[in-house]
Simulated assay, not measured.
Amino acid sequence: ASMFAFVGISMPIFLWGLVCILVFAVWLNLFPTGGYVSPSDDLVGSLTRLVLPAGAMGFALTAYIMRMTRSSMLEVLIEEYINLARAKGMSQRVIVLRHALKNAIIPVITVIAFQFSYAFGGVVVLEEVFFWPGIGRLTLTAIQS
């Protein structure tokens, strides 16, 4: 999981889009390379064209959240109240879920909020990679105009 997160952070979102196209559309021939089909015309075709862009976006954003959650949990698990809970004989599951996760999730929620701006910047380029009309294309058209 740490290697997954490290690789996910290392590459920008649009590069994940190109990797998804190469692996899942060209090599494995599972999904189309891009384009847009209206859900009212072809629901299945619309959903198959949505899988790769959503997967690339989700992979890149999830990797950073995973790293932040891990580091935050490591910091919380060395605190004194966690040692007290262990001394009382609580199970590790109860300690992690009931005590540590409550305090570790606070910085993770902050990171998730900051990810929205990162996602907006990434979606501008990702929509161009997959030839998908959306807010990214409108932003680029507005900048060019």
Rank of each mutant, 00 (worst) to 15 (best):
F4L: 10
L140S: 14
I135N: 07
I82A: 01
V96I: 13
R49Q: 05
G134A: 11
Y36N: 07
A54G: 13
W16C: 02
V37E: 07
F130D: 02
I143T: 03
L77G: 02
L28K: 08
F14V: 04
G134M: 11
Q92C: 00
L61F: 13
F31I: 11
L77Y: 09
N83P: 00
I13C: 00
E128C: 08
I112C: 14
P32Q: 10
P107M: 12
T110Y: 12
I13V: 10
G55M: 12
N29H: 14
N29K: 13
V23H: 02
F31E: 04
F14L: 02
L28R: 05
V37M: 11
A142R: 02
T110A: 15
G45L: 15
L43T: 06
F14P: 00
S2Y: 06
K88R: 10
G136N: 09
V124I: 15
G34L: 08
I95R: 02
Y36G: 13
M66W: 15
Q144E: 07
V123M: 13
A63W: 07
L140N: 12
L30H: 10
L126I: 05
L74D: 05
F131I: 05
C20L: 07
A142M: 14
T110F: 01
A87W: 10
K88S: 06
V44S: 10
M90A: 09
M68R: 04
Q144C: 02
K88T: 01
R86L: 10
M11A: 08
Q92N: 02
V51K: 10
R98N: 13
G35S: 03
A54P: 00
E79F: 06
S72W: 03
T69Y: 05
S40N: 12
F130S: 04
Y118W: 13
Q144L: 07
S38F: 01
A25E: 01
G121Y: 06
L74P: 02
S2K: 06
F116C: 06
P53M: 01
Q144W: 08
V19R: 05
S40M: 08
R137S: 11
L52Q: 07
A56E: 02
S91P: 05
A60C: 12
S2C: 03
P53V: 06
I9W: 00
R70Y: 15
